[in-house]
Design a binder for these strands. Sequence first.
RNA 1: GUGCCUGUAGCUCAGCUGGACAGAGCAACGGCCUUCUAAGCCGUGGGUCGGGGGUUCGAAUCCUCCCAGGCACGCCA
Length: 555
Amino acid sequence: MSLIRELKTSLQEEIKSAIETAKQLEVTDLPPIKLETPRNEDHGDYATNIAMVLAGQAKMPPREIAQLIIDNLTELDFIAKTEVAGPGFINFYFSTAWLYDVVAEIEEQADNYGQIDLGADEKVQVEFVSANPTGPLHVGHSRGAVVGDVLANILQTAGFDVSKEYYINDAGNQMDLLGNSVAIRYQQLLGVDIELPEDAYRGEYITELARQIVDQDGDSYLSAAKDGQLEHFREYAYQKLLERIKIDLNNFGIEFDNWFSERSLHPDKIEEVTDKLQAEQLIYEQDGALWFKSSKFGDDKDRVVIKEDGTPTYLAADIAYHQDKYQRGFAEVINVWGADHHGYVERMKAVVEALGYQREALQIILVQLVTLLRDGKQVPMSKRAGDFVTMRDVIKEVGKDAARYFYVMRSPDSHFDFDLELAKEESTENPVYYIQYAHARICSILEQVKEEGVEVDSLEEIDLAKLTTEAEINLLKELADYPEQIAKSAESRAPHHMARFAYQLASAFHTFYNKCYVLVEDQELLKARLRLVLATKQVLVNLLSLLGLSAPENM
RNA sequence: GUGCCUGUAGCUCAGCUGGACAGAGCAACGGCCUUCUAAGCCGUGGGUCGGGGGUUCGAAUCCUCCCAGGCACGCCA
């Protein structure tokens, strides 16, 4: 638990009991009391609209209700002032004393500051990337990768028991296509006159894989290739490509707890679950195929699960996969998908319902598409032609930190133009540097402090009440707010909030840096500021780590 | 045709589980380096929140219709 959250909770409870105490108030149904941070600073630190919400059932003007609530409020030591404002808001002004306590809290909790128990250890799975192992990861995958990774970090910090998972589509048609594509290139390399079929993968990496096979085994697979025996080509390509995917993700700072192979579902798990649904009349036979009755659960139409030829569709595997997820005990499953899969959402929700779970147990985050911009112009990409920019290329060009920050700074709902030039720029326009620069500046101050021989060890005796300027108070407020930001971001499953908060905190520090010189003559003030700087460093480090960014000591 | 996402300052976006005069960065203009990194700070100007209607004490936020852009609508994965 964090200070800010304790204060908020106890204030909410005080308001609640004040309403219950006030005899003149006739309230039968008390809605949850919302405390919000007002946009305008003149409206206090927190405000509630509860009086206006109650106006209807209490049959009294909001401002009167607000006054009644205030009159019945017992005094809280962290509240400096309370007032009725506007149409009936109650504004609360916090005393600054509690803000100083936050510094000790940060020192004490260190890397764990921000950790809250909102999730109550509930098991949550975040499944993301899950790109087919038929080619290297490209820019489209990168956004989902960062969104999923940071979201998982946020949920973990918020007290959920999080597991990150990658679903490998290593069964099905596309794997044979992959094998075939490599086999054809292999034959071409060995001088066989043969054309690549229309539906083949045609990236340069396919030829490269074929070349590796030639280098290792010469023409020993030639007759197999000619006979259409694709197994070796398929398996070789699969292993190599999956390996590369893992390496690329690692270089992007992403590690999964579990790599789930679709093959493990074939055929037993799929049969098991389709039998079960068939027994429940949720799967039926028609035109020689087996259909899932998804329309019963809100989908536009029913969907084929077993094709006429007896093979399962992608959906069949997905039903078995999601059954498996819930059987593993996840209370909530979050899937991060590219927006091009949005047509699949209803049908998956239907699956979850049909399996006997709550629709809400499946959350799908759709990440809108990314366009790369270079010199203001769109970088052309076509997956069919095998002509796309890889995740590796982008990381190489702009660096891991810039790429990660850019991918996570926007709401997943909005289309994203990734400006390569901007991401590379080491300037004020580039938010990544702005945030990291705050950390580097702090390190520089600490370096100076060390050189001056200032004692840093007896922090408890330092009087933080020396910190009184607006810049100092604002910075303290941002630091105090971090756990709340985690809560908000976790509740709304919105990782971009934390990217913005990092910017905001950096901004509060830069202002402080310019207005409040740390190495002042006054030793008490110097030490108080030093403590504030150390606390800021800690929170910045926590935030940067949450976002998967490095915290450079100098820039 | 149907569904999903988007439309907020010149540009890129936040705010959208309804709240008090609509925010940030960039760009424009004007200031700040004899002390801790100017990759920074401070200030000024700039908006019918795509448009119409509705619900509400109160709407950028909810409902509805329309306009514009993107994506998706397979016994592919």
